Simulated scan of single mutants.
Amino acid sequence: MAQEWHQHQMRVQYKDTDQMGVVHHGNYITWFEVARTEWMRHFDMSYHAIEEEGLLLPVLDVNAVYKSSARFDDLVVLFTRIEQYSPIRLVFEYEARRITEEDWKANGLNHATADEPYGELLTTGKTTHMWVNKAWKPVKLRKTHPELYEKIQRIAD
């Protein structure tokens, strides 16, 4: 079975728009971070708990491809899943999509995952991360935190 997408629904806030009335491009990067944090929380891997274990997961690279613009008060769903992983790196992929009120109600809080993204594609993106310790030295997760690595394997495969 293909990996499911985690979904996080939101409504575009006025503060996120620019003078042209559309969501400022930089906000999608913030949305990716929100989506990634919620993905981790859903799979019982909160950033807070991971950091308490001495692990950090900084961003090495971020990419966004803009297809269409979101506007104030649009309903948006952020889809997130793992694209690649290794004992040292983790790559997430994202899709931000505009949805209707009907989609909002039908696929809301009772549905944390979806087989496939739905709605109008706004933006796709990827973030690449590296596991490091608190001294910012690379960590091989399979050796230092095998339970966490096994959990990622189960989710991603």
Rank of each mutant, 00 (worst) to 15 (best):
E38C: 07
Q153F: 01
G108F: 03
G21V: 11
F79P: 02
L56M: 15
K67T: 13
I82H: 03
L148I: 13
G125R: 07
Q84W: 04
Q9S: 12
A96Y: 01
V91W: 06
D115K: 14
E51C: 07
E147Y: 04
P146Y: 04
L55T: 09
H8F: 14
G54R: 08
E52W: 00
I152Q: 03
A64E: 02
M20I: 11
Y149R: 06
H129D: 10
K15H: 13
V59W: 03
I155V: 08
M40N: 12
F43E: 03
Q3H: 01
H6Q: 09
R98L: 09
A64M: 01
W136F: 14
Y47Q: 09
W39N: 00
D157K: 10
E53C: 00
A2L: 09
P87V: 01
K105N: 13
V12R: 04
K126V: 03
K67R: 15
F79G: 06
W131E: 09
D103E: 14
W104A: 00
I50G: 00
V62S: 14
Y47H: 13
M10P: 02
Q13S: 10
F32P: 05
P138Y: 09
G26C: 07
A135K: 11
M45S: 05
Q84Y: 12
E102F: 03
F43S: 02
R36N: 06
G21N: 08
F72H: 12
W104T: 01
L55G: 07
K126M: 05
E101L: 13
P138M: 09
E101Q: 15
E4Y: 11
K143P: 06
Y47P: 02
T37C: 11
V77C: 15
A156T: 08
R154G: 05
N107V: 01
D61N: 14
G125D: 02
D157F: 05
I29H: 12
R97L: 04
E95Y: 02
S86Y: 08
I152Y: 04
V23F: 07
F32S: 05
A2E: 14
D16N: 10
K67A: 08
G108R: 10
P117Y: 12
Y118N: 04
W104Q: 02
D74R: 01
